[in-house]
Design a protein around this nucleic acid. Structure first.
Lengths: 204, 204
DNA sequence: GTCTATATAGCGATAGAC
DNA sequence: GTCTATCGCTATATAGAC
């Protein structure tokens, strides 16, 4: 038995991060005050800085935590029997997260912050790179199975798949009344036409 | 002869906006101080607030000015003989602007600001809507000429063309060493495969 | 129209009791 | 570990001379 309970500490840390994520999504990093975070989390300033050394550390924690979840998703997809179906599934799942406006806003905020903070940019680039790597594995496996146009480089293709997800983020933020399901269908069409062989070897 | 020279006033205003755009691109809106803008423009605080009522007004001026230029581009494209070629040209021209890192950063900053400032969001949405309208006109004209898959709605297609440009912005910001020319070629491929008839009526 | 000087307010982070 | 109280600093915008 130890003086501190690591599980309790982690749970509280997580609660603070979740509360802060809502604030950052709503007002952005700079306009969110540490007082806002404290109010949202129901704690005092002293407590906040007991768990995190700075406001920025709270912000970055959101994205280190998220990276773990995405990595698990990609790992599971890599084991799937049908790599092409797994690719479409992963894309649909990631696109589905955009139904939450807070997620859209957080991604936009992260992109803006990464453009001017080198350390944070490294984190975001690592996350993006991990996503592209995971997607590239699926593209390669699908290509080996003859399900993808051989003229397309897996790595470049993976970059554009990630880019298409970013396109959806920008559409979702620019058009609040966007029909996400309809756009996901179009996204699927674009992926099929972009990646599949010009004369498919089989139906699908 | 008047007491104030409108041309001179406009020129100075423009000089301030240009200097400020550099600051905003580098540090973002909130972390750019009015003192930064004054230093970059070579003026004093008193002068800055003689030309603009607030820091935010300087920021928005960047995007109202840009809207005019884009509108002119689209107007010219609408008059072109070959609407399909004009569409590809406009996309290439807009994508080409991303060679300037400052442009990429400004767009990201604008997206983040629009997510939390309703008045600024209206401006950005108007600009985006004007872009989509201009692209939709080209898609429609190309469709009338049998150059585009009839199963694709022009308005939705235009949204995704704009989205693909946003995808390129995100790629450019996430990957500093990105080969822009190579990516533009892929973008072109995606557009052709996405929009053109499945069995083209002619070469091209 | 341009400047210098400054009012006013709010922020991130710390100190130290309990 | 959590709290209250507050320090030290920086920022936007204004006032008013020239």
């Amino acid at each position: 038995m130890r003086t501190v309970d690591p599980a309790k500490h982690a749970a509280k840390r997580r609660a603070i991060v979740d509360a802060a994520a809502g604030c950052f999504a709503e007002k952005g990093f700079e306009r969110t005050t540490t007082a806002d975070i404290c109010r949202a989390a129901g704690i005092s300033s002293g407590s906040l800085f007991h768990y995190f050394p700075s406001k920025r550390a709270v912000f970055t924690a959101i994205f280190t935590d998220d990276a773990v979840e995405t990595a698990e998703r990609l790992e599971a997809a890599a084991k799937a029997a049908d790599p092409w179906a797994a690719l479409l599934d992963v894309v649909a799942e990631l696109a589905g997260q955009l139904a939450h406006p807070a997620v859209v806003r957080l991604v936009l905020e992260a992109a803006a912050q990464a453009a001017r903070d080198d350390e944070f940019a490294e984190l975001i680039h690592r996350n993006d790179s991990a996503l592209r790597d995971g997607l590239a594995v699926l593209v390669e496996r699908a290509e080996d199975a003859g399900l993808i146009d051989p003229g397309i480089a897996p790595r470049a293709a993976a970059g554009w798949v990630a880019g298409l997800l970013d396109a959806m983020i920008s559409r979702a933020s620019l058009d609040p009344g966007l029909d996400l399901a309809a756009e996901q269908a179009i996204l699927r069409t674009i992926l099929i036409r972009f990646l599949r062989p010009v004369s498919p070897p089989a139906g699908g």
